[in-house]
Write a protein that binds this DNA or RNA. Structure first.
Lengths: 97, 97
DNA sequence: CTAACGTGCAACCAGTCAGTTGCCATAATA
DNA sequence: TATTATGGCAACTGACTGGTTGCACGTTAG
């Protein structure tokens, strides 16, 4: 795609993907199989989400033996922080508005 | 939708919608018909985009006579600024990386 | 009143997307 | 080597979406 901004926003638009991002941020690293335990979807679906996040430059992977571990990129960490701030902002704005 | 964050990201994921947001930011206000002149799509498509942006809380409208004028909300202005910063950030990161 | 303008609604189409199931390959272990 | 765990690939489905066309409704100008 020739629209990196759109790619990032599309990636973050999906709640499952934001959840995945958050879990990886908490754990430091995670595999697709581990993440499947945290979501009500199949491993294949998680793998697709991880591929989307990787395409957007938010996570990166490295294979160690038979498992593939994912971690946040610098951009992914920035967005994870920004999401926390955004949630807080919405709580303030809409919750108290 | 019960996912305001997802709504905002979905809205901003589309390049036409980001363009609309930018044009309204430049002009102060705009109508669907005016915006149609700035995009290679029909007025109906623009109207749908405006509805999406309004649902996400990024623009608001008021009807004056036979025309409906749109302007940015406070949230919409914040995001318009953030988009500029993000574009600059990407130019630095990817352009010079 | 009539014509032209601006808008809104509804149906329709093609493409994308989240999710599933099924299958095959590779790596660790008994 | 046979078994088990971890992944990746491919096809399929239902829903959503960006865009179109067609039409009807209110509003302003002749």
């Amino acid at each position: 795609m020739t629209d990196p901004i759109g790619q990032v926003f599309s990636a973050l638009a999906d709640p499952s993907r934001r959840h995945v991002l958050g879990v990886i941020a908490d754990r430091g690293t995670a595999t697709a199989t581990e993440l499947t335990g945290e979501l009500p979807i199949t491993r294949q679906a998680v793998a697709k989400h991880l591929a989307t996040l990787a395409d957007a430059g938010l996570v990166e992977s490295s294979r160690q033996g038979r498992e593939t571990r994912y971690r946040l990129t610098a951009t992914g960490e920035e967005w994870d922080d920004r999401l926390d701030a955004l949630r807080a902002h919405l709580d303030r704005t809409r919750g108290a508005g």
